[in-house]
Simulated scan of single mutants.
Amino acid sequence: MLGLILTEKEMKEIEYLLKREMDEILFDFEDERIDYVVKRSMEERYAILFQLFSRITAPVDRVQYIRKRMHK
């Protein structure tokens, strides 16, 4: 287990970066030109980013980033 001490400004920056990356992945999920294998790895990456995001934000802020369904 690791610990990390951040200032409020640093925390907001990390939150912003995570949101931006998750938004980009969500946008790419809609692109039908992207192969299934790539989308599967995108799902894995999104899950990791969402876990990090969940650790630093309130539940109310997470709602819009909860995936409705997994890509099939």
Rank of each mutant, 00 (worst) to 15 (best):
Y16N: 12
E8L: 03
Y46D: 12
G3Y: 01
E32W: 01
E24M: 11
S54D: 14
I5D: 00
R20F: 04
K39I: 06
M42C: 10
P59L: 07
D35R: 10
P59D: 10
Y16V: 03
L17S: 07
E43K: 10
I25P: 06
R20P: 00
E8S: 02
L4G: 00
R40V: 06
E44L: 11
I14F: 03
Y16G: 01
I14M: 05
S41K: 15
V38K: 14
V38M: 13
V63T: 14
V63Q: 15
L6E: 02
L26H: 09
Y65K: 12
K9W: 02
G3M: 01
I14S: 01
L26W: 04
Y36K: 09
R55V: 06
V60H: 08
E24K: 14
E8N: 03
R33S: 13
D28Q: 14
I48R: 11
V63L: 15
K12N: 08
D61M: 14
I25N: 05
T7G: 01
Q51G: 05
P59S: 06
L26T: 07
G3H: 02
R20N: 09
D31A: 02
I66N: 08
R67A: 10
E32T: 04
R62S: 09
Y36A: 04
E21Q: 11
K39M: 05
R40F: 09
Y65A: 12
F53H: 07
F53A: 06
K19C: 07
Y46F: 15
P59Y: 06
M42P: 05
V60A: 14
A58Q: 15
L4C: 02
L6F: 03
D35W: 05
I34L: 07
G3D: 02
I48P: 00
Q64T: 13
L26V: 06
D61V: 09
I14G: 00
I25Q: 06
K9T: 04
I48A: 11
V60D: 12
R45S: 15
I25V: 09
K72C: 03
M1H: 04
P59A: 03
Y46E: 13
V37W: 05
E43P: 02
F50S: 07
V63R: 15
Y36V: 07
E15W: 02
Y46V: 10
E24N: 13
D28R: 13
L26Y: 10
H71N: 11
S54W: 11
M1T: 03
R33G: 12
I56E: 03
L6Q: 02
D28T: 05
R20W: 03
S54R: 13
D23N: 15
E13W: 00
R67K: 13
I14K: 03
E30Q: 14
L26R: 14
M22S: 04
D61C: 12
F27C: 09
L6G: 01
V38Q: 12
K68W: 09
S41Q: 14
A47N: 06
E15K: 15
E10N: 01
R67M: 14
T7S: 11
Q64A: 12
Q51R: 07
V38H: 14
K9H: 03
R67L: 14
G3N: 03
T57Q: 09
K72F: 05
L49R: 11
V38A: 14
L6N: 01
R55T: 04
T7Y: 00
K19M: 09
V63N: 10
E8K: 04
H71K: 07
E30T: 13
L52E: 09
L26K: 15
L26S: 10
